[in-house]
Design a protein around this nucleic acid. Structure first.
Lengths: 189, 189
DNA sequence: GTCTATATTCAGATAGAC
DNA sequence: GTCTATCTGAATATAGAC
């Protein structure tokens, strides 16, 4: 059999995701990707328009997985709204730690063309938004949500980029900071 | 005069900083940099070991400027510790908005070799740390500092990456979120 | 649908003349 | 200290045979 491989678009994206997980997006070339699929690079172009389209699809995949993780966490958590927000933010951080390279590619990208669909991102924050509004009240709920997202996103990125170097238990410090933030919204004048 | 240009290391780094400010670090090649200096690329190697060393120097430059901005802000601010922390965080955000590309290169880089010196980064957070400790008390001051840095850093990055798309006044939302965070530390049980 | 072969472009870096 | 010339390598992407 001359051409034993036969790939499809989903295979390609799944494999790209795996290679990015392992090595980071900067080290993904179409050559490597094709080789991992038992195929040559030009073959990929039958299934994907170009590299940007491929990476965008990978990022949508990442977003979907994060949405799933957050929804699962939301379904499993209970307690006060603050406790539930905290649980979701922990799930968010956990996801970023499990998939650092994919997370960075999806959410720290300057290039517009690679970004996941806007509706997907709205869907992603939805469970956090609902619970956060229950904590902050409706008037300033957008600011409250943005602060919460900034806090997780920022904390995770400081960790991933090796900028939290003074030791200590980062998970504990994260929980402590989140609690302070939520307490501040509960104590809103 | 056959070779009228004559560059030195400081010129090179300053020019690199300007080009990065304008176009982003990804679009900086040694060719472009040399051309902007009226010189050919190989000449740069008399002054800089390689591109990584150049970028690392640029990042130290960025850090120094940020330190300066924070120290200036600290000198000019007054009021309660909380108000002063808020003022420093605003200065921090302001700097990132003024120099987005340099900021991203310096502080969202996976590559260890490009990072500014660790002592420089300690010096950078020092004024924030001192004031934040006055707000949080000494026991959990490291967590309080880390949360504050996460909040600014995360907010700024969400902005720079175009992920805060629902409109509204982002400066106001940032101030509101910071206040909530600080209020939470004041209300610590 | 995959292949070989190649076009194109561009990068960082070095050797050696002046 | 700068130059010309070149090496080396890698990348995305396309053309056309099978």
């Amino acid at each position: 059999m001359p051409y034993p491989s036969q790939v499809n678009r989903d295979d390609i994206i799944a494999q790209a995701w795996q290679l990015i997980e392992a090595d980071g997006a900067d080290n993904l070339s179409l050559n490597k990707l094709a080789a991992a699929l038992g195929v040559k690079a030009p073959s990929l172009y039958r299934h994907v328009a170009n590299k940007a389209a491929l990476l965008q699809a990978v990022n949508e995949n990442t977003s979907l997985r994060l949405i799933e993780a957050l929804q699962t966490a939301a379904a499993q958590t209970s307690g006060s709204p603050s406790e539930q927000v905290a649980a979701l933010l922990h799930a968010y951080r956990h996801f970023a730690h499990e998939h650092p390279h994919s997370y960075l590619l999806a959410f720290t990208n300057t290039d517009e063309a690679l970004r996941p669909d806007a509706a997907l991102l709205e869907q992603m924050v939805l469970p956090i938004q609902t619970l956060m509004t229950a904590v902050s009240g409706p008037e300033q709920s957008l600011a409250a949500l943005r602060g919460a997202m900034a806090l997780v996103h920022g904390f995770v990125l400081l960790e991933l980029h090796g900028q939290l170097r003074r030791g200590g238990d980062l998970a504990v410090d994260f929980a402590t900071a989140v609690q302070a933030y939520l307490r501040g919204w509960e104590a809103v004048p």
